[in-house]
Nucleic acid binder design. Structure first.
Lengths: 271, 271
DNA sequence: AATTCAATAATAATCCATTTTTTTAAACAA
DNA sequence: TTGTTTAAAAAAATGGATTATTATTGAATT
């Protein structure tokens, strides 16, 4: 055991970074997660990786197929619709409860979180098309801050889990959409409604926000279904959809020795 | 690998049975799950058990503490309140949607499930106090049947996950409550409301049902908080509460060789 | 004698290196 | 093309080594 460095066990460390990579978009939906590669990357024994992946599988962030391995959870239009539907439902309830229960301290936190969000630049100076990751963090913080006072541990956990699932979509699909809607105005209106204690209006704004974001992403999922879907794919493997690779995977290193025969055929979608 | 017997991998098999044991009440909340013991029981290498436990940890059915191990998720009055609160919310929504979307085929299924439930004896002939496990299965089936038509994969998954969490409480706390409320009447009324398409009434009945069950269990969680809580417990281990054992654990076998020094002090609660 | 503390032993969690089994790819023949 | 056979890759599992934690013992202190 060499968990001495930062207190965490190796297992937990791998779990944390893997999770971060998935949510952070370094590992894209559909991408296979080969135990041996990851073990080499993290300088760790295969079992450790395996445990971490199983934990993530339990959280539905990665998919397992018994004799095939692990892969980052796939995206689909249907799933996105379902996801947003649930977010609307769950977050509406959480917001309603938060507004009903929240005290002044909570309001202040929401206000502060909103302020930080409003001051974060939407894009980084260098790349005008790429979304500023810092902005996204502030956005999440604002979202969580306003729902945190809901008073139910499980409800808030659902909020977080759904937000994580949504993050996968955002990372994969939103960076490419150039300019966004008048986000700042939406956030400001949401904040105003919260401070007014106007749950109904707050929920309406939140719902519109979520659905509008969905409507931006939805066409991108339907658009490029790969020209010729070549049904030569192996039998039971339909859960992990085959895709034409546009760019070589970066995080998941290629095979160690040979020029690479890419059995682990590329699955990424960069589009 | 010797997954040849029934197709499943060893990992999955251990996962399945462990899960079944937890939900089925053979492994009680708070009970420690020692890798070595389980590995011996299942005739399997420790890593396999470890993977299965990590998967269950991801689903929040077992708790992990980094250098301490795994344990079946604990119960508490607060958690029960929260759980029922969420069940009311989630199942109400699922029921509303099911009634709105369900067709005649669905209605028939609900009707059939109700019939099977109504014909299952509440207790087994031999033991008049113990709840008939078959009845419980029928009950779950009726519950799932009526919510299945909700049309949202995630919503239904939440329903199931919450139902599983509730099952832990039921197994641990309900067997001892002798006679129950007029359950059959409640189920019949629920069925009638569903067949009428009367969502409002159905939800009211369902809600009352869930909350009444909670009210039976709640006092049992508050009652026996262990006479002298001896704060000699080790430092960081507070997540797994120490309890006085009333009966020797059956599923989790004792230490292999020595007369047993029970470092893994008993945690079960039978009460 | 009772209590506290350090040293030691025992137990169990964590991890590794390797082997076995399954699946996929490649080569070859029909 | 289509089907077999062989080779490579990767998943799954093993068994045991390593390290952290808890229990125990015995001396030192109150």
């Amino acid at each position: 055991m060499r968990n001495t460095e930062d207190g965490r066990t190796l297992n937990t460390r791998v779990y944390d970074t893997l999770r971060g990579h998935i949510i952070g978009g370094m590992l894209l939906p559909g991408q296979r997660l080969k135990v041996a590669n990851l073990a080499a990357e993290h300088q760790v024994s295969p079992n450790v990786v395996r445990e971490a992946l199983n934990r993530l599988a339990g959280e539905r962030l990665v998919e397992v197929q018994p004799q095939f391995g692990f892969a980052v959870r796939e995206l689909s239009a249907d799933d996105l619709n379902d996801l947003v539907d649930m977010r609307v439902m769950i977050e509406s309830e959480a917001l309603r409860r938060s507004i009903a229960r929240g005290d002044v301290a909570w309001q202040s936190e929401v206000l502060a979180a909103h302020h930080r969000l409003s001051r974060a630049p939407l894009t980084v100076p260098g790349a005008p098309d790429a979304l500023n990751p810092d902005w996204r963090s502030r956005h999440d913080e604002f979202n969580f801050a306003m729902l945190k006072a809901c008073g139910s541990r499980r409800l808030f956990q659902m909020v977080r889990q759904l937000a994580e699932a949504a993050e996968l979509y955002h990372r994969a699909l939103l960076p490419q959409t150039g300019k966004q809607r008048p986000l700042e105005a939406e956030h400001a209106e949401l904040l105003a409604a919260i401070l007014d204690g106007d749950a109904k209006r707050a929920i309406a704004v939140l719902t519109a926000h979520l659905e509008a974001t969905r409507d931006v992403m939805l066409p991108l999922l339907l658009a490029p279904p790969a020209p010729a879907p070549r049904q030569t794919a192996p039998k039971r493997r339909q859960a992990v959809v085959q895709r034409t690779a546009k760019a070589a995977p970066k995080t998941q290193k290629a095979a160690p020795k040979k020029p690479l025969s890419l059995r682990g055929r590329a699955i990424k979608r960069v589009s």
